[in-house]
């Protein structure tokens, strides 16, 4: 049992928290714009990579973080302009799918430029040195990941419920025509949602880099894992994203430890197939009403 806690549950929840954060990032953009950003995984990688490059250029760490955040926002706004806004709530999924996929290819390649695509150690995040907590060896990075998932999700829920802008984003998500008719701008809502999603990606990126090496080529995998978490939790649901992320974190860790590290993707893939066969709208999502 202790063995299970130590080798599966602790690292599984920590990984799961990261997948959950990716899924929360998807949900943030999707609820408002109806677009899933295939480049979100690359956005996650962009944050630590920008910090590394900025530190490498001689900036102090705090300034490197500021610069990296600025990069995230600028890239997010560019992505929004090229690949999101033309397709806001349009239902033309093929168009935004290809557009954001294209952005993903470009970002992945740009990420491979600084260190020729090699993995890098990231020492400017949260410590990954484990200490003893009630008989379990855990690292601050792992604890922070889980905490960050709940804090980010909680903050977003409060933001959507309590703030004026949050309310406007929900209004746009509910009814685009109705929202425009009371003066909410779709372009601005789409920009806000994209930047918000990029900020979630920034937090995710720092945590990813704190628990493992920064590997530019992993972006698409994170997109996939985050999407499976979304599929389990239901499209657009923040609570579902949290639950879905933690579930696949633990299940994939279990498979990795007990079956073999190369079966992790397979396990997550099978999880996706099972969810689609059993409950195509996710565990928490509602089936859409068919429209003729």
């Amino acid at each position: 049992m202790d063995e299970f806690l130590q080798t599966v549950l602790v690292p599984g929840l920590a990984d799961g928290a990261i997948y959950g954060l990716v899924a929360v990032g998807f949900a943030t953009l999707f609820t408002t714009t109806g677009v899933i950003n295939f480049a979100h995984g690359q956005m996650v990688m962009l944050m630590p990579m920008s910090v590394l490059v900025a530190v490498g250029a001689g900036l102090p760490v705090w300034l490197a973080y500021v610069a990296a955040l600025a990069v995230m926002v600028v890239v997010a706004l560019t992505v929004e302009w090229t690949a999101v806004r033309p397709f806001v709530q349009s239902g033309q999924s093929a168009s935004w799918l290809l557009s954001t996929l294209a952005v993903s290819v470009v970002l992945a390649e740009l990420l491979a430029v600084p260190y020729s695509g090699e993995s890098r150690n990231f020492t400017y995040g949260v410590s990954k040195h484990r200490f003893d907590l009630a008989g379990l060896a855990v690292s601050p990075a792992e604890l922070t990941a889980v905490a960050a998932l709940f804090v980010v999700a909680g903050l977003l829920v409060v933001f959507y419920r309590r703030t004026r802008i949050g309310l406007e984003l929900r209004a746009i998500a509910d009814d685009l025509d109705g929202a425009e008719a009371i003066g909410i701008s779709r372009a601005r809502a789409s920009q806000i949602a994209t930047v918000l999603s990029a900020l979630v990606a920034a937090v995710t990126g720092v945590l990813v880099a704190s628990t493992q090496l920064v590997t530019p080529s992993l972006g698409l995998s994170y997109t996939f894992y985050g999407f499976v978490a979304t599929a389990i939790g239901g499209m657009g649901s923040i609570g579902g994203a949290v639950a879905g992320g933690l579930v696949i974190g633990v299940v994939s860790q279990f498979a990795g430890v007990h079956v073999g590290s190369l079966t992790v993707n397979l396990t997550v893939f099978l999880l996706l197939v099972v969810v689609y066969v059993v409950r195509p709208h996710g565990l928490f999502g509602a089936a859409p009403v068919r429209a003729v």
Binding site: R164, L167, R170, A171, D174, D177, G178, G183
Partner: peptide, 27 residues
Amino acid sequence: LGHVLEGRHVFKSLSVAENLRVAAARA
């Protein structure tokens, strides 16, 4: 320019109070 759309287009997942609040905030 106020516009009450055909088919109502209220924000279904918002409460009545929130529907009014979100409109007032943009006024």
